[in-house]
Every structure is written in C-alpha cells, then in structure tokens.
C-alpha cells in the first residue's frame, strides 16, 4: 500500500477576532466580528479576497479564495447550514437567500462579490421564539416533508410576496402592460413564481396554501376527509380523555 500524505496547508478555522498571518502559500481564513480594513481591490488566488458583509444582522469579515460561493461560505465557514446545497448549479432553489431584500441563489454567487451586502438566511427570519408568519404557515399547512428544500422555499416565498406588493408580473400574468401596483396573486401566479424552488417530496399544494394564507392574511382551515367511518381510537382506556 502506497499512501502519500502531504500537508501543504492546514485549514483551521480561526475563531472570532483573530487575524492569521499569511505565510507563503498558506491560506488565510478568518471570521471576525470587527470591522475589516479596506478590502483589497484585487488579490491573488493564494491570498484570498477579504469580504465584509452582514448576515442576519451580524457583521462578518472573511478572507477566502475567490472561488468560494456564498453558499459554501455560509455552510462551511460561517456556520449557517440552514441554506441548502441541492444541486450547486442553480437548478433547484434550495440555496435561496435574500440579498439586500431580493431572492438570489447563493450557489451561483461568489462570496467575493458580496462586499457590503446584507444577506438574510432562513436562520434570520424568526424574531427570537416568534416565527416569521411564513414559517408558521409552512408548519400549519405542512408545506414540507424532508425539510431540505424548505429554507429556500420560505426565503423565496417571502420574496414572492414582496414582489407582488411591488406590482411585479410573471409569465402567467395575463396583462403585463398594467400599471405596476400591488397585485393579488392567484394560485397559478403563486405556483409560477415559486417554480424556481424544487420540492422533490412534492409538498407543492401545501406550499401554495401556506403562501396564500400569508398573502391574503386570511386563516384557512385544511379539510381532512375520510371516505367512511374512521376508527382512530386504539385504547379503551382512553375514552375518558375525551371527557
């Protein structure tokens, strides 16, 4: 057995506030809560690019190779794994985050281009214990199963409602020439606008119901229908619990 183990670099994550000196080929990686010095206009591949941005209201300054995507930076370096890697090629929407209020795909965004950006991920939506209404609606309407596409779906759904509020149209809008004003979305409008977020478990009808509820502000019940008489009680002893 021939195994050649070589160590050119080590990739330890430096914790808050530490600055690591770069030596030769070594890569500098840091997460600092402090303000970064002026970011270099250009940097060589070995030195990495310094980027300062806000994620969920927290300031981050990172120095990473320019080929690191925002998605990988969030998941592998910042420690926010809520944004998901489903395809890494812009074909599924699982990595959707809000950048400066608009939905974008973090897998096709280089971190290097995010200088000064304000990024909101799924982890930044709830206020303490209070869920964002869209999160609550997804739970109520069971708008997910495995949960893997869910952060992207929810970020996207929030943006869809903003876009509708701004009067943006879609491919299924009958009259795109109308004056831009806040639009009420039909179910097909919601479906079209959410079509960039794939859910392989197939929760789409429930996702539409959740978005519709938040959009209209009207609580909706789900109807649960059984064909015949249902038999749910398993234990005689439980009869009294209904009393």
């Amino acid at each position: 057995m021939r195994i050649r183990l070589r160590r050119r670099r080590f990739g330890q994550l430096l914790i808050v506030g530490t600055v690591m000196t770069t030596v030769g080929n070594w890569m500098k990686r840091s997460i600092a809560q402090t303000s970064s010095p002026a970011s270099p206009i250009s940097s060589s591949q070995s030195n990495g690019v310094n980027v300062a941005l806000s994620v969920n209201g927290t300031f981050h300054s990172l120095t990473l190779e320019p080929r690191v995507t925002l998605l990988d930076a969030l998941r592998e370096h910042i420690g926010l794994t809520g944004s998901k890697k489903g395809c890494d090629h812009g074909q599924c929407g699982a990595c959707t985050v809000l950048m400066d209020g608009r939905r974008v795909l973090s897998c096709l965004t280089l971190l290097a281009t995010c200088e000064g950006s304000d990024v909101t991920t799924i982890e930044g939506l709830a206020q303490g214990d209070d869920l964002h209404p869209m999160q609550a609606a997804f739970i109520k309407h069971d708008g997910f199963q495995c949960g893997y596409c869910t952060p992207g779906q929810i970020c996207s759904a929030i943006a869809v409602l903003n876009e509708a509020h701004n009067g943006e149209v879609s491919y299924v809008t009958t009259d795109v020439r109308q004056e831009p004003r806040s639009v009420q979305l039909s179910d097909d409008e919601i479906r079209e606008r959410m079509s960039g977020n794939i859910c392989r478990c197939g929760a789409y009808p429930n996702i539409v119901a959740a978005i519709r509820e938040v959009h209209t502000g009207e609580a909706e019940a789900q109807s649960w229908q059984f064909a015949g008489e249902t038999e749910t009680a398993m234990f005689d002893a439980l009869e009294m619990r209904t009393e």
């Binding site: 926010l80 794994t81 809520g82 944004s83 998901k84 991920t121 799924i122 982890e123 939506l125 709830a126 869920l131 999160q135 609550a136 997804f138 739970i139 109520k140 069971d142 997910f144 949960g147 893997y148 869910t150 952060p151 929810i154």
Partner: peptide, 15 residues
C-alpha cells in the same frame, strides 16, 4: 403539526 416542524422551518434541523 409535525413535531420536528419548527426545526425544519428555521433551518435548525441538521442534515
């Protein structure tokens, strides 16, 4: 509702 629902809608469920 799913008992794991909150974890999944907040990004806290870890894969």
């Amino acid at each position: 509702d799913r008992v794991d629902g909150r974890l999944k809608v907040t990004g806290a469920a870890k894969y």
